[in-house]
Design a protein around this nucleic acid. Sequence first.
RNA 1: GCUGCUGUAGCUCAGUGGUAGAGCACUUCCUUGGUAAGGAAGAGGUCAUGGGUUCAAGUCCCAUCAGCAGCUCCA
Length: 597
Amino acid sequence: MADQHSAAAQMPQLVEGPFPLSTLRHSVAHLMASAVQNLFPGVRFGFGPSIEHGFYYDFDLPEPLTEKDLARIEKEMRRIAQHSPAIQMRTVTREEARKILAGQGQDFKVEAVDLIPEGEAITFYYHGPEGKEWGDLCEGPHLDSFKDHKFFFKLLSLAGAYWRGDEKNPMMQRIYGTAFWTQAELDAHLAWLEEVKRRDHRRLGSELDLFSTHPEAGAGFVFWHPNLGTVRRCLEELWWEQHEKNGYEPVYTPHVSRESLFAVSGHLENYADMMYAPMELDEMPYRVKPMNCPGHVLIYKDRGRSYRELPLRWAELGTVYRYERSGVVHGMLRVRGFTQDDAHIFCSADQLADEIAGVCRMVDFFMKTFGFEYTAYLATRPAEHTIGDADIWERATQALRDAADSIGLKLELDEGGGAFYGPKIDYKIKDALGREWQNSTIQCDFNLPQRFDMTFTNHEGKPERPIMVHRAILGSLERFVGVLTEHYGGRFPFWCAPHQVAVIPIREEHSAYAKTLVDRLRGQRYRVEAMLEAGHMNKKIKTAQKAQIPFMLIVGEREAQDGTVAVRPRGDGDQVVVPFEDFLSKIEILRRDRVAE
RNA sequence: GCUGCUGUAGCUCAGUGGUAGAGCACUUCCUUGGUAAGGAAGAGGUCAUGGGUUCAAGUCCCAUCAGCAGCUCCA
């Protein structure tokens, strides 16, 4: 409990400043730009807004910047701030703006002028020593002065970024930084960044022996080590348990199919650049599956279906392969082969709302189990390129709303954010570090039933088109477990921890008693790290602590005599000596109820 | 894919064109220790891979692979 709620893990609490924080940060971005201009005279400027945790500014420079330059720029910023008693706004006409910027060779800024809508004021903001003010095209607002306010900033990192975020445009150099009204807040933010780094699942992945990737296998392919394999097995057990309780049935589908299957499903025309190249078998092209849905449709179509068997709920932990561009693969969070916790529900239109509600309840159950807060978004019909009549879109969207209403789930609106084939509900979860992730999704699909000409016989004996619902709760196991690792900082709750209990005798002569504990625990299917070999108790404690094992049982003479154990929880908790039987009943509850620590 | 950076022992990292280094981890021996590092010794490297420059390359150059920070794109 202590660790993930420690001060460093929390987003800094912000104090009120004389101006909103975003204004400060935007102004500091200007300050940075003026410093860059002083140090690198030929610079051309892009955009420099404030963002969630700070600000950035994009520059076009002949030479690449290095980390060393950041310190120089910071220094120059402090100097300029001291000589900037006033920040002043000047309103100009569109023509004047163009002229000023063209005269300075600021081509990107000239383009920026054209982006300002007709009728809006065009303004410049100036700061710096009198007579040598530096000005930037900007809608503001800004501080009134740098010199008269106390503020604290730090430049953090360098990156490339396309002009106006379009990969067809030239690449600029971006400097990220952050700013606060107090040193304490800046320090807290930097500590938070450190904590994010410390909890990085790639780092924990190697520290805790969780997973690896290998150049020999190629980028974006994850190898699950025994420790993380154990976590995954626990999740899968929970997953199947919940799916059985909710009326889902397991299906398994092949990883490779004839290409023509994906032609019928439409993946080939819409998704080909994400799919692996075809392979020839018996002079016929085959493909590795990028999604599980076509396979489930084939099962549906294997025989006629009656309204009496609907809804059908079919679940599969299905591994899919997608080509991701080389620069985007990232640990377990963005990979080229992953396992979706997939399911498809085939139902009639009037069953839709109930089915959606059922899925929402499951999402809620899982997210509570893992301790994630979440927000749900209703994504409605996009403006163009959709399939299905307006009528069915309207009914399905209403079904999603009704479903949410029926279980008291509040939906934020994501207008026009639906897929081309139907409306959906997407979930964003918030982890222990306050970061957001998108995992769960519930999507109505009118497309595949039509493409595959799926039908069921309704009570009038007529063929009717089912609605297909795609849904994933965890998203992909790789991404989810990666997020979970960071969420817990490697301190997996007892029920899914790779090793649950470490047994540590104080002296070798206590090994016999320790061994009886190990045997009892193993007999009840606990995952026990038996540290019975000769060696120092302190070292074993340290090892167990570093491995984040939830409980250490430390036993010596007194414990052996009394049939007790000294329970040392990981982290800062107090050690207690309890009868071994008491310990057993305590952990039984932690396991059975999957208690989130 | 794009821009920039990086690749030395399992991990974290030094290494200035001239004999490959440290700490931790690991192995062995000694140590019997009541709650996060007892001591000693040992082993561990084709310096990512392939080419090039040089009398000489971990070090300089090129390519490839992989990783990192982002951008774009995504579960």
